[in-house]
Simulated assay, not measured.
Amino acid sequence: MSATQPAPRRAAVEALLTGLHSSPVEVETWERLEPWAVARVTLRGPIAPRTVIVKWVRTHPIETHAESWRLCAELAALRFLSDDLNLALTPRVIAADLSAGLVAMEDLAPRTALDHLLRRDGAAAHADRLVAFARARGELSAATVGHADTYHARRAALGPIDPAANLVGRFARLRGEALRQAAALGVPVTGPAENELGTVLAELSDPGPFLALSNGDAETNNLLLNESGPADARLIDFEFADYTHALVDAVCLHVPGPAWMSVGDPIATGLADHYRRALACGAPEAEDDRRYGFGLAAACISWAIVRLQRFALLDARSPGDGSRPQLVETLEAAARTAETCRALPHLTGWSRRTADLLRRRWPDADLDFTGQATFPPYTARG
């Protein structure tokens, strides 16, 4: 037993699976999947499967992500998707003991994370895998539209929740924080831009036909697929699962997430169309250019505002830190998306002015992100 496998946790896993199978189950090996509170566990005993993935609530005082509600969200979401919707897009829950802070789920190996493939080989080598990523995001939203009550009932059975407050509160904080940060930078959001920010928050807080389940972290590290042959994609990490605006999950195709300097042009590569067609299977309103475009622009601009709140942190870093040009490209990519969608012209202008200000303030971030030779799609931040 390794130092990262506390005896109480091992015993709890053995007890959980022994109770499930009514026969003794022993943990043979425990492979911690750092830095997460996740392990691949090899089992000994007359059971199948031989390996499972175990996820737990962190309890050590120096560790983060200790909130037990994260495990409740994961368990509710995975069972909702597999048991209520019969959707084979996520790992299957094998057993859970929330009092012990444990969930055991299907091991999806030999699938690997898409971001690993992109970092290793570049996006061009995995164009088909990126298509699978775009489709999976759209399919998740399409399948869950119209089923919010079922999910919330499952989630409420595991602990108190307030769906309306969660949805509205997630975006309401943006307005005050965005206005304060922008004013401090010298690019205040005023007049027509401030009015547009109000429409953005209204759209995201009241998604209407685009209300769908998200895992809360729509990035390539949370998609597992086969390296060769059929992709057979699966979405993972539902700790932040909740119902929100479906197009929040499309932002990752258009605007860099935390890991990337650039994500390229999803329209030219066709990724945007693959996502949109998948979403339209459950939300036909996605076929309406104006409705869809406004929602996408709102989601992308809101993400740029969220990332701008890191300005003070990045400003204190040394020149050459990759997070600085990443923030510039985040603002500019959000602006390009809004321009393509013909939406939010005043916030688009504000985004570009803010990016220009950061280019002047940080000469090391004054780079050409449109040059494919320097920043091909899915160039890692560092």
Rank of each mutant, 00 (worst) to 15 (best):
H126S: 08
L130H: 01
A123H: 10
V131G: 11
A132G: 08
E139W: 04
G138R: 01
A143C: 02
A123S: 15
A100E: 13
H116M: 10
D128M: 02
A142W: 07
L108W: 06
A113N: 09
R119L: 09
A134Q: 01
R120F: 09
D128I: 01
E139D: 14
R120Y: 11
D107N: 06
T112D: 01
A104R: 02
S141F: 04
D121V: 11
G138K: 01
A143S: 13
D121C: 10
R135Y: 04
M105G: 01
D107K: 07
R135M: 05
A123L: 07
L114D: 05
G138A: 03
T112N: 00
P110S: 09
D121W: 08
H126W: 13
G101M: 03
T112R: 10
T112Q: 12
A100G: 05
E106S: 13
A142V: 08
V103P: 01
T112P: 00
L140E: 04
H116S: 13
A100H: 08
D97S: 08
G122M: 12
A143I: 01
L118P: 07
L114E: 04
D128Y: 00
R111N: 06
R111E: 02
L108R: 00
A109Q: 15
A125R: 15
G101F: 03
L108C: 13
L114M: 07
L130S: 07
L140W: 08
D128C: 00
A142K: 08
A109T: 15
A125T: 10
A136M: 09
A127Q: 15
S141K: 03
L108Q: 01
L117Y: 02
L102F: 11
L117N: 02
A143D: 05
L130E: 07
A125G: 05
S99M: 05
A134V: 06
A142L: 09
R120D: 15
A123Y: 07
D128E: 13
A134F: 03
A136W: 01
A124W: 02
A125D: 12
A113S: 15
R129H: 13
P110G: 07
R129M: 03
G122I: 14
L140N: 04
A124P: 06
D97M: 00
A136I: 03
L130Q: 15
A134K: 00
A125V: 05
D115F: 12
A113G: 10
R120N: 12
R135S: 05
R120P: 03
A127K: 14
E106A: 10
L118A: 07
A100L: 02
L98S: 09
A124T: 14
D115W: 12
V131E: 14
L118I: 12
V131D: 14
D115I: 10
T112Y: 00
L114K: 07
D115G: 02
L102R: 04
A142I: 11
L114Y: 06
L98Q: 13
L98M: 10
A134G: 04
A124Y: 03
R111M: 04
R137G: 06
A109D: 12
R111I: 05
A123G: 06
A123V: 09
R137P: 00
R129I: 04
P110H: 14
L108F: 11
M105L: 10
R129S: 06
R129A: 09
A100T: 05
